[in-house]
Structure formats: structure tokens, C-alpha cells
Nucleic acid binder design. Sequence first.
DNA 1: CTGGGCTCTGCAAACGGTTTCATACTCCTC
DNA 2: GAGGAGTATGAAACCGTTTGCAGAGCCCAG
Lengths: 335, 335
Amino acid sequence: MVTIRDVASAAGVSPSTVSRCFTQPEIVEAATRERVLRMATHLDYRPNRAARGLITGRTGNIGLLLPDLANPFFPSIVKGIQHQAHLSEYQVFVVDTDEDPAVELGLVRSLAKQVDGMILCSPRMRPAELAEAATVSPTVLLHRRAGGLPSVGIGNADAMRQAIDHLAALGHDRVGFVSGPRRSWSGRQRVAGIRKAAAAHGITLEEIGHFAPTFEGGSAAAQGVLLSGVTAVVAYNDLIALGLLNALRDRGVDVPRDLSIIGVDDISVSAMVRPALTTLSVPKEESGREAVDLLLQVLAHPGARNPPAETLPCRLTVRQTTAPPNQRAATRTTA
Amino acid sequence: MVTIRDVASAAGVSPSTVSRCFTQPEIVEAATRERVLRMATHLDYRPNRAARGLITGRTGNIGLLLPDLANPFFPSIVKGIQHQAHLSEYQVFVVDTDEDPAVELGLVRSLAKQVDGMILCSPRMRPAELAEAATVSPTVLLHRRAGGLPSVGIGNADAMRQAIDHLAALGHDRVGFVSGPRRSWSGRQRVAGIRKAAAAHGITLEEIGHFAPTFEGGSAAAQGVLLSGVTAVVAYNDLIALGLLNALRDRGVDVPRDLSIIGVDDISVSAMVRPALTTLSVPKEESGREAVDLLLQVLAHPGARNPPAETLPCRLTVRQTTAPPNQRAATRTTA
DNA sequence: CTGGGCTCTGCAAACGGTTTCATACTCCTC
DNA sequence: GAGGAGTATGAAACCGTTTGCAGAGCCCAG
């Protein structure tokens, strides 16, 4: 392994000078600098980041905590985060919590020493734990907002408004919301948003259960949806919507004729199924990139007073799972 | 930040003793050890891994290179790898190459210093580059085999045999194979395997193009498949199969009546679409776990002469996209 | 010619651990 | 009671880098 000393002796200077050539090139004489850099590339020298980190206190790594890589929503975010992080020479530690809130804080702690900061994506932990996590390591929240921590979120309430506007325009007046995990902050935002939007349109809202944010969770929701007598549902996320869509079809329910379905996230699968899912498109990669930018900004100005809380807009993508209500089916199910 | 010296003075011993309590507990006297460990937990001391790595040469990290996180095949592997790595207190650096072979080697080099070893998942680079990567850092190949490097793979040829057996049993005698990336080693294995299996059954094999291993790639393959006059196709992977399935439906082709489709991977989406995709189930998480085990084994015995090359079996999962050939449709398309 | 200020470079001390080597102590045997 | 083996601990060197401080050399003004 080639060290800074090898480069130094090869270039006939001291290690300090070599170091300066990399960290503050302008203060070393041009001729010297050029000679050093030439030897460095010639020897294929790369600074040992662990050694550098030991003294600077910076690791060049950022940590990313997320609930479940198996949900295609998150890999998109990872891609955005990685791309942006690599632009600034940062590496990313990815940690999957398997939707278990109990392990989140522990993972943050165990990762803290090895990263300069963390991005907590859709964390399920409680606000107090979140505050504690933030003391352990500089933290940016992604798809969550809490206690004045810097965060990147999406316009959940506005998204729900768009969904309800769309359903109202189609003529629905009895709509369901299929909830995801009880601990999901986004979920609570969405419920609040859809309540308000439904009220504004005079639409009756049925809130249906809490389900795992997975395809299976959506299947499990089918019975409750059918019993509720609604003509349209908005689901917590696309996976639930897809599971629901499938379970309904297996029971002979025609989507969108008998029931309209709207998801949230716009994961790639949603465009692959038939009928293709109408959904609220969330800017996934972009939100990941923004989170990195925000974190780097926080790292650069540790004492900033007002940590920014960004909100990115969602956009309704109308595909094939929404249509005007089927009067006959509606009256049948409500009967 | 609490250091080893803090623990040492709190416990009334030297830093050396504290260090030994963690690295080789058996050589320090029981009473002393207990006192030290009690102080350590009390102060919430955690060894600085960068500092430790500086002297031991071990980082406690492993690197994972993969082509595209957006393909649901890979997140499953990541989960398996992470889970197994965390059991041995290793962290995982994940790097996505966006299917670009040109950047792979560079990423390996830039990551090398920060990891103890790397898992290269479905790398697209050439054997010579692979050999070079292996000199840079201890390497395990996942879903690829090359030049005696330790590897974990799947039984591609056997998988193709199962697919052809299934299609032959249904009565197909003219089958297509839709190829993925030209640089994919698995792809070449599968072509070779399916050629042999088809020959054994007296089945005519049509090899159709090279396509991106994505949903869009599958859509693009539709025309070629229709022109080929086959009654069944096996696709390089599930995403291509799904794209194909969709594009065919949009052209009015009924799957499986007019055409049978078999994918490879068994990604979660394949069970979510209708008709659900018949596919070769690859043990994704398991292969990830095996790769970690293998890498740790390599790290523990650096001089081992015969690096193991494991092969995990695939299993055909029959769903709804395979059926006996439709005689009329077949003659129509071959006309 | 002297002295003050600049610019560039080297020395040496960190950073937080691990590990080699030496030392002090205990215990046992002859 | 002396000597040797064995055990538990501490002192110090080291890993590869950054950085505060000092010093060398130079230029220019007085």
C-alpha cells in the first residue's frame, strides 16, 4: 500500500507538503505541487480516508436508514442519494430496518461513529427518539418532519387534495382511505389531508384499517374495502393499492368499473400492471438528492439556526384504475 | 466523544488493558475485565473503527457493487447481504453502476481502501478487469464465475433445462430466448443452457436480439418475438418478460393462449401482475448471504488455495403465463 | 546594510486505537 | 531460600494523515 511518505520521498519533499498539495493546493509553490501530484498519480496514491478521518473527524461517509428495500419506493431514493453523494465524494452506508421501529435507534447509534451524518428515510421512531438520534449524529429527515430537524418532505396534504379533486370530478361521493403502518408519519399526514379534502367536497370518507405497507397488506385490506361500501379508495401507498387491486380482481370485482383505486408513490411496478395504477407521483430520486444537499449544507454550517424544511410537490398520474362510479355496484355494496 | 483513555482512567487501568478486554478478553484477569467492561458500558464507549482499522488494517466494511438497484432483483440480494454482514458486525457500502461496465473498475478502486473485501454482483466487466479488481481487494463474485475467483452462482443451465422441460411437456416445439445485455455472463450461460436443453428435446430455438434488462427492454423485444413465429419464449429476466407481456397485450396477443412466457429471477412483481408470470425462482437473499459467508471465509484464510465456487439451484415456479401452444395462432404468425 | 514581512516548507504532535516488549508479581520446585 | 516459569499489566511504538508552529530564504524599504 502506497502511503503519503512514499509520495513524499519520491518527490523529495516532506509528508506535510504532500498533504497540503491535496488539502490546500494554493499554498504550495506551483513547481513543487506539480511534481508532487505527478508522483502521486504515478504511484497511484490515494489518501487513506480512515487515517484522515481520525484527525479531521470526518469520515466522508453518510448513513442512510430506511424501512424496507423490498418496497421499490426506497431503491429509487437510494439511487438519488447515492448519485448526489458521489458527486461530493461521499460514500453511503445503507441500512434496512425491516419496518421495525425498535431497531432504528440502535442502528443509528452503531453507525454514528462511521458517518458524518445520517439521512433517516421515513423513520418510524417516536419524536423523542428522533431527537435523540439527532444528538448522536447530524441528521436530515426524509419523508418525515419532526421537532425542527432539517427535513425533505412531500406535499402530502396537497397530494390528497389532488386525489379527492380527481375522484370528485368523476362523481364519487363515498371514498375510502386504506391506512398503512400506524407509526407512519406520512400516513397520518395523508389521513389528515384527505379528511380535509373530502370535507371540502362534501365527500363521505371511510378510513379502513391499518395494514402493512406491502402487497400482502393490500390483499388483506380487500374485505374491509368491500364491506365499507365505497366506490373509490385511496391507498397509503402503491404496494397496498396493487395488493388490493389484485385481491379484488380475484373476487370478481372490476377495477375501475366497480371500484376506483388511487395509490401513492408511483413505483415502477404501478405502470407495469394492467389496469395500470392511477397514483400520486412522488419525486423519489429528487427527494433523495435534496436530502443529500441538505445534509451537506448542515455539515458545512453546523451552527445554523433555522434548519430548512423543504417540501416537494406530488403530481397525480392518471392511468387506468379510476373511472366514474358504477351506480349499480355502489348501491349493491351499500345495500 | 469517549475514548479508550477515558475508560482506562475511569477503571484505573492503562489503555492497553481496556483494549485487550475487547480484543482478547481471556487474557485479562476476570475482576479487572469485569470492572473495565462495566465502566465501558457505563460511559457508552464504542471503539472508533477508523482508529482500529488504521492499525489492524481491517475496516469492518464490505463493498457491494451491483448493476441497477431499480431492478427489484438486486434489492433482495442487498437485503440478504446486509443481514448476513450485520451478524458479523460488518457494514455494507452499496454502489450502483447503472449498468455501465466502464465505471465498474473505477468504483472498485475507489472503494478498495475503505473495505476489507468486495462482493461483485453480476459484474459486466471483462475477465481481465475482474482479475485486476481481485488484486485490488479480496473479491467474491455473485452471479458470475470467472478465472478461479471465489463465487456464488446459480444453476443457469439447469434452470433452462427446467424451463424447456416444462414447455416441451406442454407441447411447444418452437421456442424463443430473449437475450439481455451482451456483457452479461449469466446471459451467456443461459443461452448455452437453453441451446443444449432445446436440442435434447428436438425443439427449434430462436435467439432474439439483445435488450436492456428492463421493462422497456422487454417492450422493445415484442416485435422481434412476434416475427420469430415461436409459441413460447424464455426471457433473460423477469423485467424483460414483464415488458414483453405488456407490449404483447397492447397488441392484442393473448398470453398464455397465443404465446407462453417464462422469466428468470422471480422478482416480487412477477406475482403481482395478471397473468402472473411463470418464472425460474432464483434464491436471491440466500445467494447474498452465501456471498457474505464466502467473503468472510476468504478474509479469514487469505492464503486458501482452492477458492470455493458455490452453485445454488433454481426452481421453476409455474404461474399463469404458460400453456399449451395455440395451433391457429402459431400457424398464423409463421405464415 | 539591517530589519521586517512574506512565502514556502519541515518538524513534531496529535487523532484513537492495537500490539510488542518489558516488568512486576505470584507461585512452585529443588 | 533462590531461581525459573508463568501470568497480568503498563510503557511506548506504530498505523497514515493533518496541522500548529517555527524556521529558512527572499524581497524590499529605510
